[in-house]
């Protein structure tokens, strides 16, 4: 991975409370797994930065190397990798995601 792309990812992860690396954009997700994760975040009413990995092949590969995680979407909260689509859905259903966000000082508008 080039230094440029690593710096780009690092900056996104660290400068946003919630960063979601996804296929497509929050308004137009281009993969069901990314779309589902966006829906969960919208339901919880938390602001997040969506980063479209389809914008560049380098980014698409770079984000997989960054956390040693082979799939997209990837959700980061306060600079920390929380999980991919399966983990986020599981955490949302059990209420853990809401707790995790609240613990990190992010206000959640809805609790499931």
């Amino acid at each position: 991975m080039s230094d440029d792309i690593h710096t780009f990812i690092d900056d996104k992860v660290k400068s946003h409370d919630i960063a979601l690396f996804m296929k497509g954009t929050p308004d137009f997700p281009q993969c069901g797994f990314s779309g589902q994760t966006v829906q969960i975040l919208n339901y919880l009413g938390v602001p997040f930065e969506g980063i479209n990995v389809l914008a560049s092949d380098e980014l698409r590969q770079g984000i997989k190397d960054y956390t040693n995680w082979p799939t997209i979407p990837q959700l980061y909260v306060k600079g920390e990798f929380v999980g991919g689509a399966d983990i986020i859905r599981e955490m949302f259903q059990s209420g853990e995601l809401q707790t995790h966000l609240t613990d990190k000082g992010i206000e959640v508008k809805q609790s499931a």
Partner: peptide, 26 residues
């Protein structure tokens, strides 16, 4: 959970995200 999934992905030796498009894991 992240570590558990990483262990399964490691077992799949790079097939995940390549040959294998989608594997929902629990």
């Amino acid at each position: 959970r992240v570590q558990q999934h990483q262990m399964v992905y490691a077992a799949l030796k790079g097939e995940m995200g390549g040959e294998l498009h989608a594997l929902a894991l629990q």
